[in-house]
Amino acid sequence: MDFSIVLDNLPLLFKGLGLTLQLLIISLVLGFILSIPLAIMAASKLKWARIPAKIFIYVFRGTPLLIQIFIIYYGFSQFEWLRESPLWIIFKEAYWCAIIAFALNTAAYTAEIFRGAFLQTPKGEIEAAVAYGMSRWDQYRHIIFPSAFRRSIPMYGNEVIFMLHATVLAGVITLVDLFGAAKILNSRYYAPFESFISVGLFYLTITFTIVFIFKLLEGHFLKHLKR
């Protein structure tokens, strides 16, 4: 094995790392924002709110992300009206298609985490809020959100790692993220071990960093649960 290939191409790998982190952060932020209304709807007692949210969550969690990204990037080009609309600026770019697919996907998984956490809120707390005359929104803002988000931290940490690993699919639709960079190295030098082991180490390092950050968050926000 000749790891000088890797050293010579470090700029390519670091550029890939940059894109991977960028895709990860943008889709996590968008997905998080989208997941909150989704989770509220999915936890709702109202049928017309609950059912669409549940279908969205079921479909996005039940199908491979690869299919979702293919539908958005390759599939949408089937529709002429879309190709002729101004929206095409977004849908013709692999970059935006990847972000849309990742954001919708993580929104579904995150909504499911939050839905579970919302429903776990002790009844007494909500009864107390009602007794205080809080509106439904005030109940969410002051009672349900603070405790539910805390409870969700460990599960959300897993979701972030899952999303990091999912970003490799950007490399499948021609983008040069970390995985795309490894593919380029492999095809240029026919060096599968050097290319894929080195990006594997990159991913491992990011994974450990995420685990570490979430341990800190848990230590801070879930201190009351520690013994």
Partner: peptide
């Protein structure tokens, strides 16, 4: 730990292309 820290597609490429070499 290692398996859960590396994306599945990277491992698959490693086994597919690496195995070939």
């Amino acid at each position: 730990t290692v398996i859960r820290g590396i994306p599945d597609l990277v491992l698959m490429m490693l086994i597919f292309f690496g195995g070939q070499v």
